[in-house]
């Protein structure tokens, strides 16, 4: 059962610092080739911890769009 919400990264604003990676309790985040952070949607539970530490304000917690 997937959470209702999940983290969405604004790739254009992300500075790839990795602060979010360190706080994610589900290890759902990684920095893709030093360019930007990416979320593993299957792991993310939408807790918002990452959004709270991001120095660039590039993470938003959004409603999961069911495909």
């Amino acid at each position: 059962m997937l959470s209702k919400r999940l983290a969405a990264i604004d790739k254009g604003r992300c500075v790839a610092c990795g602060a979010c990676v360190k706080v994610c309790p589900r290890s759902a985040l990684s920095v893709f080739r030093g360019c930007y952070a990416q979320v593993d949607g299957d792991l993310c539970v939408g807790c918002g911890r990452c959004a709270g530490v991001c120095p660039a304000g590039s993470i938003n917690i959004k409603e999961r769009v069911q495909a």
Binding site: V15, C17, A19, V53, C54, P55, A56
Partner: peptide, 10 residues
């Protein structure tokens, strides 16, 4: 601001 705010423009 946030602890690692510096990292935004380091």
């Amino acid at each position: 601001y946030r602890p690692r705010s510096w990292c935004a423009f380091c």
